[in-house]
Design a protein around this nucleic acid. Sequence first.
DNA 1: CGCCGCATTGACGTTCGTCAAGTCTAGTGG
DNA 2: CCACTAGACTTGACGAACGTCAATGCGGCG
Lengths: 239, 239
Amino acid sequence: MLKETIKVACSNCNLRELCMPIGLKEMELQRVDDLVSQRRSIKRGATLFHNGEPFTSLYAVRTGFFKTSLTTEDGRDQVTGFQMAGEIIGLDGIVNEHHTCDAIALEDAEVCVMPFDRIEEISREVGALQKHVHRIMSREIVREHGVMLLLGTMRAEERLAAFLLNLVQRLQARGFSRTELILRMTREEIGSYLGMKLETVSRTFSRFADEGIIAVKQRHIHIQDAEALKRLVNPQVCH
Amino acid sequence: MLKETIKVACSNCNLRELCMPIGLKEMELQRVDDLVSQRRSIKRGATLFHNGEPFTSLYAVRTGFFKTSLTTEDGRDQVTGFQMAGEIIGLDGIVNEHHTCDAIALEDAEVCVMPFDRIEEISREVGALQKHVHRIMSREIVREHGVMLLLGTMRAEERLAAFLLNLVQRLQARGFSRTELILRMTREEIGSYLGMKLETVSRTFSRFADEGIIAVKQRHIHIQDAEALKRLVNPQVCH
DNA sequence: CGCCGCATTGACGTTCGTCAAGTCTAGTGG
DNA sequence: CCACTAGACTTGACGAACGTCAATGCGGCG
């Protein structure tokens, strides 16, 4: 668990459109630059934080890819999300001042460490930041509503189609291809997120490939028919 | 959709331990009293807000019982939560300034209307309120993680046991019995929340009753063996 | 008192989980 | 550079859990 103490400025970070509020005044920008106390590098497989650890900071992903997951006493676990550049990790820790999940890097990663008391202090002064924090938390709530819908009502094919479309859409927003992607997680992790077993994930990938919707080669996915995926998620009501 | 314009004070509301931050100074209390612009009565079956409506306020349940639910284009719907006295509804609307679910009263209800711009304004001045808002949002995120775990990894019996235990625990915190409860929702709504069909909910209730764990008479539930329910949620690891 | 919505129960079918065997690939060390 | 291995992935056969469809029961409200 390496820690580096590089001083950084959000104001000229190339991810600021994803992380930060827009339209800040010069003075406000300077205040917001104080948010990030340091950066931290996390090697693939290492944890950013563990369930039970005291909560001090939120983390903004700069590079790399994370999963967050819960583990129950009896050994089941549930992946609650995958996070990529510009996304915020750690919101779960605010309520009890302790983290309630694990955050694990799925590839070598770097995060910006934002001490939460500093976030609260600055957002009392900078209304745009306050609004921004509220929006980030609300967005997470809405995202989880979507996952509940997926887990509660969809079948395997629909779940996986929704998952792929979501991933590729977020990657596209970061300048990546909208047809080509590399999965950073195992079939088991996908399955855990989507509430299905790894064999079902694998079988469903194969079925999509057979139908010419995607091409799968291990973790490389090529989306050949995005429309077909969308149709799977939103099955027509045929009457 | 009745609207009443009664002026109210949080400072002497009997729910304030559930809604409000504790340990406020006298001056802060006065500011916080300005949060609630009015109360609103909602008849059973009526909606507090709809998906798509502009977001202006959060709502604190004073009396009654709500569900929040999503409906997809193709007609599936997912209940995302049930809310009782002291709980906050509407957090989903913050991010896009529009509500993204429906909130429907399952019995005649009354809510406190808290305009969100006023919440933001006052929480810039009163640190304890700011912290409180953050905690409420974080708590909702953590709750939803729990639902994801339930939907992703549990079987019907475990889901329903977890559901009953959660309900009764919240009711107990409000001074009700921890063995006796009345369900305010239909089997279908329970099923939608738990990702199962109403028939499976009904069958699972019957099985619990056969095993002497609970007594079911329509919506009246008597919990006879809470330990058995807990064992169902946390199955022993037998080796 | 009768109706309608909600709930229960049974028979049957589908989807997905389980178990097991076998393949592929990236990383390691000789 | 290549052989070896462990972990990840694929695929098949089978079974369990839950969904679907349908018939029936119950209770509250007008």
